[in-house]
């Protein structure tokens, strides 16, 4: 059904240089994936914290200047009266919040899709206050020779989804926030349907059922509207007990749009499910798998920074129907699993 690569995990934190000499890379995970020329490019989420020093608390932060972000460190004595230690996720210093771990987007390149070289420099780095707690989980969709990259921006206002474009994976052009807080897990379709671009997204409907997958339309990929809820976590489904969210850009097949989404279930275990959406109207759900196609089993999926996570936002599909699912394991590493369109359609 689905075959994990023998070389898993194929990218680890130790393969990656930090963005500051006193930062430490904790995770290289949740990659967007795209074929570019004869290379496979992964858009890695690189999470970093600060090397600890005895008697001190050190947290990373970004200083913004002229539309650029610079890596900085806040280091204060543990007994400083102005510092308030929260849980392991952050501190409050002089009334301001700091997170202990923050992310940016880095490229990794490969000729064979398995052995990757990670760039030394960041690709998308936080550049303004809307991104002050980092940028995460990039997804890439190619439309008319332009690559659209959507990614999660995190700030004191929560998380939202921003859009950028690139032609060459060297320079990016930022297009602003396309989904206001709290919204992430955005998957942009690779072509217009009925004259409109479309996307899956995951707003936060806190207090009104579990977070669900919504669908919306756009005339230009920048302005979005006609949002509707199309997939809710299923009752009596332990894999979807907490929430669900979209993955990589949907794949067009003869039977419908194929999307691999994630569920967060009992005991915070993540798993991956295929769903089939109508070709003419992707807001119509045709079929949805009853069992996950991938869930944490291997040690690299069950033990790590955040155990029991498999999360995919990067898929390469080849003309012969072969599907390469790149996925993050435990918010720490990149792994690869292989399947085919026929196989996925057969479980639906």
């Amino acid at each position: 059904m689905i075959k994990r690569n023998a070389a898993n995990p194929i990218i680890k934190p130790e393969d990656t240089k930090p963005s500051h000499n006193r930062y430490r890379v904790r995770g290289t995970f949740n990659p967007g994936a795209v074929k570019f020329g004869d290379e496979t490019i992964l858009l890695l989420r690189v999470s970093e914290d600060c090397l600890p020093r005895e008697g001190y608390v050190a947290v990373p932060y970004y200083r913004f200047e002229a539309g650029q972000g610079f890596a900085e460190i806040l280091e204060v004595k543990t007994d400083d009266p102005d510092v308030q230690l929260k849980d392991t996720r952050g501190i409050v210093y002089k009334g301001k919040d700091y997170l202990s771990t923050m992310s940016h987007i880095r490229l990794a390149r490969s000729r064979n899709g398995i052995n990757f070289t990670v760039d030394d420099k960041p690709f998308i780095y936080p550049c303004n206050e809307n991104e002050c707690f980092g940028v995460e989980d990039a997804r890439v969709t190619k439309i008319d020779n332009l690559y659209y990259i959507n990614y999660t921006v995190v700030s004191g206002d929560g998380f939202a989804t921003a859009l950028a474009t690139t032609q060459d994976f060297i320079d990016i052009e930022r297009k602003g926030i396309i989904f206001a807080p709290q919204n992430k897990d955005v998957s942009i379709f690779p072509e217009k349907v009925n004259g409109k671009y479309c996307a899956l997204h995951r707003p936060n409907n806190e207090g009104f059922g579990l977070p669900s997958i919504w669908y919306s339309e756009s005339p230009d990929l920048i302005h979005w509207g006609n949002h509707k809820c199309i997939l809710r976590p299923r009752e009596n489904m332990i894999w979807e007990e907490m929430k669900i969210g979209g993955g990589a850009a949907p794949i067009k097949t003869s039977e419908g749009w194929l999307e691999i989404y994630h569920g967060k279930g009992r005991d915070q275990i993540y798993s991956l499910f295929p769903v089939l959406l109508d070709l003419e109207d992707p807001s119509v759900v045709l079929k949805r798998a009853k069992e996950p196609i991938l869930f944490p089993i291997e040690p690299y999926e069950t033990e790590g920074f955040f155990p029991n996570v498999v999360f995919s936002n990067g898929i390469i599909h080849e003309d012969n129907g072969r599907i390469l699912i790149y996925y993050g394991a435990c918010d720490e590493t990149v792994c690869l699993a292989e399947t085919s369109i026929d196989m996925l359609l057969s479980v639906l």
């Binding site: 926030i177 230009d220 509207g225 006609n226």
Partner: peptide, 9 residues
């Protein structure tokens, strides 16, 4: 008035 973008705080 239907599709919205460039959200900023």
């Amino acid at each position: 008035l239907i599709h919205w973008g460039y959200h900023e705080p």
